Simulated assay, not measured.
Amino acid sequence: MNNDKKIRRSRNRLIAGVCAGIAEYFKINPWVIRGLFIILLLIPHIQFVTICIYVVLLAILPAPKGSFFENFRAHFGEQGRAASAEHKQRSTSTSNRRIIKDVREHDIH
Rank of each mutant, 00 (worst) to 15 (best):
M1C: 09
N2L: 12
N3A: 15
D4M: 11
D4P: 00
K5Y: 12
K5T: 15
K6P: 10
S10N: 08
R11Y: 05
N12R: 10
R13N: 14
I15Q: 04
A16M: 07
G17I: 05
V18S: 14
C19E: 09
G21W: 04
G21F: 04
G21M: 06
I22S: 09
I22A: 05
I22P: 06
A23R: 01
E24T: 06
F26Y: 13
I28E: 01
I28K: 13
P30I: 04
V32Y: 06
R34V: 03
I39V: 15
L40S: 13
L41D: 01
L41E: 00
L42F: 03
L42Q: 03
L42I: 01
I43F: 11
I43Y: 02
F48H: 01
I51W: 02
C52M: 02
I53M: 07
V55W: 00
V55Q: 07
L57S: 06
P62C: 10
P62W: 09
A63I: 03
G66T: 00
F68C: 06
F68T: 03
F68W: 07
F68Q: 04
E70I: 10
N71M: 04
N71A: 06
H75F: 15
H75Q: 11
G80H: 09
A82C: 12
A83M: 14
A83K: 14
S84C: 12
E86I: 10
Q89M: 08
R90T: 05
R90C: 07
T92L: 13
S95C: 00
S95I: 08
N96D: 11
R97N: 12
I99W: 03
V103G: 08
E105T: 14
D107Y: 09
H109F: 03
H109A: 08
H109P: 09
